[in-house]
């Protein structure tokens, strides 16, 4: 049984990857949302928001030249947040494809076969991580194309990649559970909505210190904020402090709880009866 756990997980991962290859539109859609948001935030709001960061002369009366500098500063500031929006948004696709898969009769077939426990879910989680990383690569390419330049070194970039992988594992695991918990594909497409909103209510787009009381408290204590701060530090050299460790702890915690929840839901999945 356990000797086959790895082989079965690889088989299930291959199933996810093949589907991804055959239907690339979901991956492109997942990459598309952060790209559009990035262009929106940088080119529409960036001049003013960048001025608000206090790195240059100021939005009012600063003129066209200053707006350009502000925009570049904002681009550097916002890219980590955009990357996390991409990771969080990918969870949507994960929940939907899990919910769709669970309504397919093939899952009942898997459950009557002597295959390793959890390999079906592991295939979904790993497949979703790969999809998230592909989408992230597209977002990074667009960011570089519009002028984003990380100021840190290759080791930091490697660490940043690791952090994104970890975040993707946490989001994917949680969203596999959300997909299993949903009793319809519609529910599955709504329930991860909060994940897409969370990065906005943190330090990704504007400093949390500019927010009013309770919102500020929330922004400073929610998981995306340490992730965002650590990622920003690893990309443009802002101070990281304790946020790195906190970010890793959040990811591991969410992934572990998500996995336990998902396995329980999978074991108790009702059997669909034909009409």
């Amino acid at each position: 049984m356990t000797a086959h756990a790895l082989a079965d997980t690889v088989t299930m991962l291959r199933r996810s990857l093949r589907r991804m290859r055959r239907y690339p539109s979901l991956t492109l859609f997942i990459a598309g949302i952060p790209v559009v948001l990035m262009l929106l935030f940088v080119y529409v709001f960036g001049g003013t928001l960048g001025a608000g960061l206090g790195s240059s002369g100021g939005a009012l009366g600063g003129g066209a030249a200053n707006a350009g500098l502000d925009r570049d500063a904002y681009l550097a500031y916002v890219v980590p947040g955009i990357l996390l929006i991409g990771v969080a948004g990918a969870g949507h696709g994960t929940a939907i494809s899990v919910a769709m898969d669970m309504t397919a009769g093939i899952i009942a077939r898997f459950r009557t076969m002597a295959i390793a426990r959890g390999s079906v879910l592991a295939g979904h989680i790993l497949g979703s991580v790969v999809q998230t990383l592909l989408a992230t690569v597209i977002v990074v390419i667009v960011a570089l194309a519009i002028g984003f330049r990380p100021t840190t070194g290759p080791l930091d970039w490697l660490a940043a990649t690791g952090l994104i992988v970890l975040a993707a594992v946490a989001v994917s695991t949680l969203c596999v559970a959300l997909g299993l918990a949903a009793n319809s594909v519609e529910t599955a497409s709504n329930s991860p909505m909060f994940l897409t909103l969370l990065p906005f209510l943190g330090s990704g787009f504007v400093p949390a210190s500019t927010m009013p009381g309770p919102l500020r408290w929330f922004a400073e204590n929610q998981p995306f904020t340490p992730l965002n701060e650590a990622l920003r530090g690893l990309l443009i050299g802002t101070p990281i402090g304790g946020t790195g460790l906190l970010a890793v702890a959040w990811c591991v915690g969410v992934a572990a709880l998500g996995l336990i929840w998902a396995l329980r839901l999978y074991e108790r999945l009702p059997v669909r009866v034909g009409g």
Binding site: R18, R19, R22, A104, G105, I106
Partner: peptide, 13 residues
């Protein structure tokens, strides 16, 4: 081996 009433094939493949 079970062949149930609900089609247990992967439609996309």
């Amino acid at each position: 081996g079970l062949t149930g009433q609900v089609s247990a094939v992967d439609q996309q493949f």
